[in-house]
Simulated assay, not measured.
Amino acid sequence: MRPSLLLPLLAVALGSAAAQPAVVAGTVRDADGTPLPGASVYLSGTTRGTSADAGGRFRLEAVPPGAYRVVGSMVGFAPDVRELRLAPGAQAAVDLSLAPATRTLGDVGVEAERDGRWARRLAWFEKALLGESANADSTHVLNPEVLDLRVRWGELRAEATAPLVIENRALGYRLTYDLHAFRASATSVRYDGDEHFEAMAPASPAQAERWAAARARAYRGSLAHLLQSLLVGTAEAEGYSFEIAREDTYGAWRTVRAPTRWLMDVDADGWGTLRVRGRLDVTYAGEPEEPAYLRSEWFREPRRRPDSAQRSSLTVDRGRARVDPQGTPEDPFSISTSGHQAFERLADRVPEDYRPPPDL
């Protein structure tokens, strides 16, 4: 989510950290300590991943310093997730232990065949997880039979017995998604999971160009773009403006324009601290609202035409959130979004290690 202006500035700001990549290595074993050859190991939200060898060993090299979730995943086992904060040049050792899954693929497959309501629940699940945007129309779960979908008191709950395989033909990515928790109702959606991105091979140069342009559009205006531009001090130049909204003693919300220098403190190592007391209202003039945003069940304004700017709001847990040099929150739950950024779901995401080419 950012134009070419950010590229040279980001390289200067993070050059010292980028010159000393880290290494993540370790083993994947089952609960009894037996190696699991072929197990998938990846850094959540990125294109970086590998498979364990015959001895259950894995190694990820040239990892930029920052905050990561290391995920071990294999069919028939529950995933194991470890959080890391990698310093420049770090050699991190991670041993992953996968416990057997509590349900089998066969149980869920029979349920799906016998229950005619399951297809409607799947549509509800995809709408909540993937989104309602134009990109979501071209994004689908390829192995829905691994899902257990149940409705209780008007709330959809989902579990998966194996990693979901999601194909996004709008952006040209295939995702492996380990679903940890999912609940959706008419008024809220709450889910947690880890995804690994793999770029699909384009069928033609024209398709490659379309995907490149679509990925750049998806990036611009996203939370990742916002945080990266705040880190390097280019947010206003890239089309962002900010207001802080706070509730007074009488319950009224008052807003004040917030210069970017108020928002992000950046350390010498490239890490930043986002400081927001109250609600941060964000306007991004670089891209218009998507028409589907007005049709979303989450949209509440009485108008029919998309605005020329995207508007979102951020709430920071306890008023402070640490952000790594790549623009990734150290705690993924420390920043809550609403508005256009919340409308964009998994189908609108690009990998955390994605950066638009200079000509896009």
Rank of each mutant, 00 (worst) to 15 (best):
D353K: 04
A216C: 05
V23L: 11
R215F: 06
I166C: 07
E301Y: 12
G72C: 01
L9G: 01
A184R: 08
R152L: 07
W118S: 13
V94Q: 02
Y191R: 09
A136V: 00
T47N: 13
S336T: 15
A184D: 15
M74I: 05
R311I: 08
R114E: 14
S51T: 15
A25Y: 01
L5Y: 03
R254M: 05
P163T: 01
A22N: 08
R318G: 05
L227H: 04
L105I: 14
R318W: 12
P8G: 00
Y284N: 09
R261H: 15
A136L: 05
P100S: 00
A347M: 05
D248E: 13
L60M: 04
D331G: 02
V323N: 06
L223C: 07
P65H: 07
V41R: 05
T187W: 12
G56R: 04
A212P: 01
V12I: 10
V151Q: 13
T249S: 11
Y173R: 10
T102S: 14
R254V: 06
A213V: 14
R257L: 11
G89M: 08
V24A: 02
R157E: 11
G221P: 02
E243V: 06
E289H: 04
F125W: 06
V256I: 15
L6W: 07
R261M: 09
D359R: 08
G270A: 01
A224P: 05
R117P: 01
D331E: 10
R215P: 02
F182M: 03
P163I: 03
Q310A: 12
S51H: 06
A123E: 08
V323S: 02
P37W: 02
G172N: 03
W211L: 05
A11P: 01
A342E: 12
A87V: 05
W262Y: 08
V141N: 09
L60N: 04
V266H: 04
Y284A: 07
L175M: 14
L346E: 05
V24L: 10
R261Q: 12
S336C: 07
R257K: 13
P35I: 10
A39G: 06
L230F: 13
G286A: 10
D115V: 05
